[in-house]
């Protein structure tokens, strides 16, 4: 049995766990070794930083340091100082733009095609082998082919988003259309509703919740994949930014990026969840 628990209890426990976690982290990530104190060549030290030149290790950032850095980043998220120094907001915006483009194109292809597959057993049988083989392929495996044919890294990453978000939408749309109840189709037939009217007034609303489920899965996958794709192609975007901060050994920034990616992903999912509630129907 699942008892209902008051919201404040859940929230309190969440806050408590977070506090414990951050506190333990704060204590555990003490200052790393300050180096051996051995004198080094001042030019070498200028190049690497005093601590590193003396053999010291970059310490893992403490939550308090990350919070300070987060404040810095969020105070001016949209600055642009050259190609390699842009605000975190700009990077997230680039990533979102690519996801929107790839996901939008995928929806434009997958929903009509899924509709046809759902309505035509012939097409469903004919296309099924291709879908089954291509669906499990990691979208990043397409990247070299995309780079070779498209020759533009930005568009290639959009293509990768397209290819990873097309499958769940395609399969869910086809499934939703196939599962439209016989009796509703019979109603439409006895009313001589015609193909278009039946498609838009009966099948589409009947299948809409299933289609939205597919879109929700797709946007989740797309947001996972964009980070990896941007790490590969570089230039802009939150994925590239993560990789760049790794090269800078700015671990605080990476923790912040992880947090940000999580929150944006959550918001994307919630947005589609809201649309799903709009089209949901109850039998």
């Amino acid at each position: 049995m699942h008892r209902t628990v008051p919201f404040w209890q859940q929230a309190l426990l969440s806050a408590l766990l977070l506090g414990l976690f951050l506190g333990a982290w704060e204590l555990a990530a003490g200052r790393g070794g300050g180096g051996t104190g051995v004198a080094v060549d001042p030019e070498y030290a200028a190049l690497l930083g005093q601590a590193a030149a003396q053999g010291g290790q970059t310490p893992f950032p403490r939550p308090s340091e990350i919070a300070v850095r987060l404040w810095e980043l969020l105070r001016d998220p949209f600055y642009v100082r050259g190609t390699n120094d842009q605000g975190i907001g700009v990077q997230v915006a680039y990533s979102l733009l690519r996801v929107a483009a790839g996901f939008g194109l995928a929806a434009l292809v997958a929903i009509p095609l899924g509709f046809l597959i759902g309505m035509s057993p012939l097409l469903s049988g004919a296309l099924n082998p291709f879908i089954q083989v291509l669906r499990p392929v990691s979208p990043l495996a397409w990247m070299p082919l995309a780079l070779f044919t498209i020759k533009d890294s930005a568009i290639s990453s959009i293509f990768v988003i397209f290819i990873c978000s097309v499958w769940p939408m395609l399969l869910n749309t086809a499934f939703g259309v196939q599962s439209v109840r016989r009796e509703w189709l019979n109603v439409a037939r006895t009313l001589e509703a015609g193909t278009l009217r039946t498609a838009f007034r009966v099948i589409l609303p009947a299948a809409a919740p299933t289609i939205l489920t597919g879109m929700r899965i797709s946007i989740g996958i797309a947001w996972l994949v964009i980070v990896a794709a941007e790490m590969l192609v570089g230039g802009t975007g939150i994925g590239y930014w993560v990789w760049n901060q790794w090269n800078n050994l700015s671990l605080s920034d990476i923790v912040i990026a992880i947090l940000l990616i999580g929150i944006v992903g959550l918001l994307l999912d919630r947005a589609l969840g809201a649309v799903q509630r709009l089209v949901a129907w109850q039998d």
């Binding site: 109603v187 037939r189 006895t190 009313l191 001589e192 009966v202 609303p205 009947a206 809409a208 089209v279």
Partner: peptide, 19 residues
């Protein structure tokens, strides 16, 4: 085929639940 001249009242009501 079906015709608007022969209206059917179905066993299950067959109403569209989203309308």
């Amino acid at each position: 085929g079906p015709s608007l001249d022969r209206a059917v009242i179905f066993q299950g009501h067959a109403l569209m639940p989203w309308m």
